[in-house]
């Protein structure tokens, strides 16, 4: 209980900072006033309602969703290096989005955004199979390299598309490293609902996933069907990652950093871990975004770059501790 309160306090701090810090500082008092009595002639109020609030919402959706997706992926593959970004699931979703926007034309943002889901589904299924998931043992090196290969392949395709269609250059900048700056033009409400559905589904199937993580043989004894649980996990990862990419682009390393922290706070019970992951993911992404705004003004460093800068050393720290040859 105390720990939950601590997480909520952390998230509240992230929210306040995300609303008030930036090129135009807004004090929390003014922020409250803008929420209560919005005055369209007050520039502070406009900044808050038109820019910071959508950005905040996007950060909450993407951060929470990526935290949940990362935890599910790490538990399913029993691999502390699993992350929607590193394993290419983000890239798959963003690739589908780019294809939708360029090839099909963009009728409206919400319907194009729906393409992220088939993209994420295909990428996560592919990387899981290529990483050896169907055989039950997903080696960390194999899985990470399969993800790197998938990322490289999709990046090459995207670079080619962007060079052919110069008008997609802005999409590309958004594609390469996720960012919360375009939040106002993203379908926030729809994606919040979908990510929420993914989270609820994750909570529902958590006991089966936990059973499977004990090993295929033992979980069969407990009455779970491995393939069915894998499919359920795939649905969770797809819904969460797709929604995150639709609002913020591909943000890597968040799903890598959040699960170990969540385990630290919540212990080894998957449902509590998932809740903690959602809260921590949202808080961490908002912190990263706020940091990106202040680190070198007037330029703004995209949130995806900030999470990569923070998460890269975390990756190293985890990789050092793994003994791939010894444990496999």
């Amino acid at each position: 209980m105390l720990r939950l309160l601590g997480l909520l306090a952390l998230l509240a701090l992230a929210l306040v900072l995300a609303l008030s810090v930036g090129a135009r500082p807004v004090t929390p008092a003014v922020a409250l006033e803008a929420l209560r009595a919005y005055d369209p002639t007050n520039p502070d109020h406009v900044t808050l309602m038109a820019i910071r609030l959508p950005r905040l919402a996007a950060g909450l959706i993407a951060g929470g969703a990526l935290g949940v997706a990362g935890t599910i992926m790490q538990v399913m593959t029993r691999n502390p290096l699993a992350d929607p970004g590193l394993l290419g699931v983000n890239s798959g979703a963003a690739f589908a989005l780019l294809i939708g926007a360029t090839v099909l034309g963009a009728p409206d943002a919400a319907s194009v955004a729906l393409l992220t889901f088939p993209g994420a589904a295909m990428a996560s299924a592919l990387v899981f199979i290529l990483g050896g998931g169907l055989r039950g043992d997903v080696g960390p090196v194999r899985l990470t390299l399969a993800g790197a290969a998938l990322n490289a392949l999709l990046l090459s395709l995207v670079t080619a598309i962007v060079l052919i269609r110069q008008d997609t250059l802005d999409m590309f900048r958004f594609w390469v490293a996720g960012s919360l700056t375009q939040a106002a033009s993203r379908p926030l409400l729809e994606m919040a609902l979908i990510a929420g559905a993914g989270g609820v589904f994750a909570l529902a199937v958590a006991p089966q996933i936990e059973a499977l993580s004990l090993g295929a043989a033992l979980s069969r004894g407990l009455g779970t069907k491995p393939r069915r649980v894998q499919a359920a996990a795939l649905v969770v990862v797809t819904l969460c990652t797709g929604a995150a990419v639709a609002v913020a682009g591909p943000i890597a390393f968040l799903g890598l950093m959040v699960p170990p922290l969540a385990r630290l706070v919540a212990g080894h019970a998957l449902r509590r871990e998932l809740l903690a992951s959602a809260l921590l993911g949202a808080a961490l992404l908002l912190f990263a975004d706020t940091l990106g705004r202040v680190v070198m003004p007037p330029a703004e460093v995209r949130a995806g770059i900030m999470t990569a800068l923070i998460g890269g050393p975390v990756f190293l720290w985890v990789a050092r501790r793994l003994r791939p040859g010894a444990t496999a």
Binding site: L81, L86, P140, V141, T144, L145, A148, V176, A177, F253, M296, A299, E300, V301, R302, I305, A308, L309, G311, G312, P313, F315, L316, A319, R320, L322, R323, P324, G325, A326
Partner: peptide, 27 residues
């Protein structure tokens, strides 16, 4: 040091270098 650990750590160094490169690109 098993070679696989080195490969993993190398991947991580590559990730950090790429992140720093994109960071510098924004400047």
């Amino acid at each position: 040091t098993p070679p696989l650990t080195m490969i993993l750590v190398g991947l991580g160094i590559g990730f950090i270098a790429s992140a720093l490169s994109s960071f510098l690109l924004t400047l």
